[in-house]
């Protein structure tokens, strides 16, 4: 029973990632694509957590942490590129 629920949730996460991929391809504006990329990151983290529950292992926990950190930083970098036009500034203007 638990097995069926876990595999169903994995399939649903796959569907969610596919929908977000469509939004990245056809997204009319840049913020849509960034939100979709962030959503793909969150869905990947959740999918890896469910896979580690299915396989009953702790080997994937570092993968989850590193993927979450990279998703966070890439979202911040994209947002700063939209708002400022530059990612790493030489000197902050107050």
């Amino acid at each position: 029973m638990i097995e069926i629920m876990l595999i169903t949730s994995l399939a649903l996460f796959g569907v969610a990632i596919a929908i977000a991929l469509l939004r990245i391809i056809f997204g009319p504006s840049l913020p849509d694509r960034i939100i979709a990329l962030d959503m793909i990151g969150v869905n990947l983290v959740s999918g890896i957590a469910i896979i580690s529950v299915i396989l009953a292992t702790k080997a994937f926990l570092e993968v989850i942490l590193i993927l979450a950190i990279l998703s966070f930083i890439s979202t911040i970098a994209f947002s700063k590129y939209i708002e400022r036009g530059v990612i790493i500034e030489r000197k902050r203007k107050s």
Binding site: I73, I76, I87, I88, R90, K91, R92
Partner: peptide, 11 residues
């Protein structure tokens, strides 16, 4: 890199 993005290079 996160520090460099959020603050600036000179700080």
């Amino acid at each position: 890199v996160l520090l460099f993005i959020v603050f600036d290079i000179e700080t």
